[in-house]
């Protein structure tokens, strides 16, 4: 299914290793009312990697991610996931929301199991699966708490566990840490690296923080100001085998941050 995409010419500048599980072809989006958010985005997301969309606020990152998620129709162009055209949400994609989007009336356990509940998985079975993922994101013991009893960081862990629980091939995260305070965010970023290493999944990550992008990504797609186009693709190539704190002192990390800063600078004037 994915192999069929191998003969698709990669986007100029894309050093595609592995085949693309998500392909975005010439996507344009103009909102009703005339705001042109995306002006022809063509992009491949290699399987098993974490690709980050990085760009200034309001450049159309959320728009693009929602189009890939099937939550928003594009004005023109097409999105392929696993070789098939996206017409709406599907079980091979799951979403982590910027504002968590948890159900305040439901416990952590039910929130995490919600995707499976919608699919009609038996209660005992889906809860067993959910318990595993709750432990995985570091919330063991919080199964019966409610969202309003948790901190922002913990709520987003619930959002992540919910996305993991449906076992989709692609996980999309829209600025998952932007509503989380700084210390919590660092810890969360480190934990995320551990999770990614264990899950053989493709992550589509959105952020406006250069440091965050370099820290977590295999590939970084720089988007220009609205109407958005792909400006550059960067592959930081960091050694993530060691201490997660050490990465932030790695010269390759610092070089990548500096490089991206230099190329984004020209959009600021």
């Amino acid at each position: 299914m994915i192999a069929s995409l191998a003969n698709v010419a990669p986007h100029p500048g894309t050093a595609a290793q592995g085949s693309a599980i998500v392909s975005v072809r010439n996507i344009k989006k103009t909102y009703p009312g005339g705001v042109e958010a995306l002006s022809g985005i063509t992009l491949d997301f290699p399987e098993g990697q974490l690709t980050t969309l990085l760009g200034p606020s309001g450049c159309g990152k959320t728009t693009l991610l929602k189009i890939i998620a099937g939550l928003l129709p594009a004005t023109s162009g097409e999105v392929l996931v696993g070789g098939r055209t996206v017409t709406g949400p599907g079980p091979e994609r799951s979403f982590v929301f910027q504002d968590f989007a948890l159900m305040p009336w439901a416990s952590v356990l039910r929130n995490v199991a919600f995707g499976l509940e919608l699919r009609g998985v038996r209660k005992s079975e889906r809860e067993a699966i959910a318990v595993g993922h709750i432990a995985k994101v570091g919330l063991k013991g919080f199964e019966y708490k409610y969202p309003h009893e948790l901190s922002g960081g913990m709520r987003q862990r619930v959002g992540l566990a919910r996305a993991l629980a449906v076992d989709s091939a692609v996980i999309m995260m829209d600025e998952p840490f932007s509503a989380v305070d700084e210390q919590t965010r660092r810890k969360f970023q480190e934990d995320l690296l551990g999770l990614i290493a264990n899950e053989k999944k493709t992550f589509l990550f959105v952020t406006h923080s250069i440091e965050e992008a370099v820290y977590v990504s295999d590939r970084i797609v720089l988007l220009s100001r609205r109407p958005s186009r792909v400006s550059t693709i960067i592959e930081p190539k960091l050694d993530r085998s060691g201490d997660p704190e050490g990465i932030r002192r790695d010269p390759a990390y610092l070089d990548a941050v500096e490089g991206i800063w230099q190329s984004l600078k020209k959009y600021l004037d």
Partner: peptide, 29 residues
């Protein structure tokens, strides 16, 4: 209801009935 809660239900594949009975009613309670 916050738009992202509606999108959450959609993205996890809720049918119209599921969205109504499992999300909208409770969110608007």
């Amino acid at each position: 209801i916050s738009p992202s809660l509606v999108e959450m239900a959609q993205s996890f594949g809720a049918s119209r009935w599921q969205a109504f009975s499992k999300v909208y009613v409770w969110a608007a309670l």
